[in-house]
């Protein structure tokens, strides 16, 4: 069971208090009705599914209730960093060594 740092509580807490909420940084288009079928399909269904660092959303659902973002390694499962919703994705690719 992971420990997750909630950027709102500024505390590292058991995974049980948190819920996963899909890939991060996929903003709902400002005007969905102007989207082509292909654009809307991509927004709804197409995800990056990387091996390695993945920007994803979590919610501290049984805690402060906030949604936030995280970079997590899909190989090791481990979190590299968590950050508040609305903040840009930190540039960790160069800094973080992904273990084999």
């Amino acid at each position: 069971m992971l420990l997750i740092h909630c950027p709102y509580c500024v505390d590292t807490l058991p995974e049980l208090e948190f819920a996963y909420a899909g890939e991060a940084h996929i903003a709902r288009p400002a005007n969905p009705m102007s989207q082509s079928d292909e654009e809307w399909r991509d927004f709804l269904f197409i995800r990056s599914n990387p091996r390695g660092l993945h920007a994803e959303r979590w919610r501290h659902i049984h805690g402060c209730g906030r949604f936030f973002n995280a970079l997590r390694d899909t190989v090791s499962d481990k979190f590299s960093v968590t950050y508040k919703a609305g903040r840009p994705r930190p540039d960790l690719e160069k800094a973080v060594q992904v273990p084999k």
């Binding site: 909420a21 903003a27 959303r57 919610r59 209730g65 906030r66 949604f67 919703a85 609305g86």
Partner: peptide, 8 residues
Amino acid sequence: MEDYLQTE
């Protein structure tokens, strides 16, 4: 609802 409210 919280998701849309907080993030969109």
